[in-house]
């Protein structure tokens, strides 16, 4: 099923993500279930301490791929509304870097659709994070790169 543009909110932002607004956006009288997923900056990775993450994006392509993912999700599950927002710039531990909110008539579909969205976003959408380690060094994170 096509998800009309009034039922989707897809954004890149350099401002803190307002999760309440996203949850309200996806909640409709026809929904029986609403989920909110937040990806947050984790302070510890394999014993190393992160002081901050810097996110960079290729904006045109990131938005195109995020919209493509939202469309695919709506084809696979009976989703009523989807919000998909990714933050860019400098984020400190516990801040949200990505938010997914969506609604369906029944709860099972919301979990499956949300899982699909975040898993696919992480391999398909051109956004990158740079670790700022507590020892002062920085490092771009590129899974499976040399």
């Amino acid at each position: 099923m096509q998800l009309p543009s009034k039922n989707r909110l897809v954004e890149l932002t350099d401002q803190p993500i307002d999760a309440d607004t996203l949850t309200q956006f996806v909640t409709t009288p026809l929904s029986g279930a609403v989920i909110l997923f937040l990806g947050t900056v984790r302070e510890l990775t394999q014993g190393k301490r992160t002081t901050a993450l810097d996110y960079d994006a290729y904006p045109e392509m990131a938005l195109a791929k995020m919209n493509e993912l939202v469309s695919e999700t709506a084809e696979k599950w009976p989703v009523q509304k989807i919000a998909l927002v990714h933050r860019t710039g400098h984020l400190e531990p516990a801040e949200a870097s990505v938010a997914i909110a969506l609604s369906c008539p029944h709860r099972g579909d919301t979990f499956d659709a949300g899982r699909f969205l975040i898993d696919e976003l992480k391999v398909r959408v051109p956004i990158w994070k740079k670790e700022n380690w507590s020892d002062g060094t920085t490092e771009w994170v590129h899974p499976s790169a040399e």
Binding site: E60, A62, H86, P143
Partner: peptide
């Protein structure tokens, strides 16, 4: 429009 980048790491 061409762009080159290493594996992505958003989220």
């Amino acid at each position: 429009q061409i762009a080159c980048f290493p594996p992505v790491s958003g989220g």
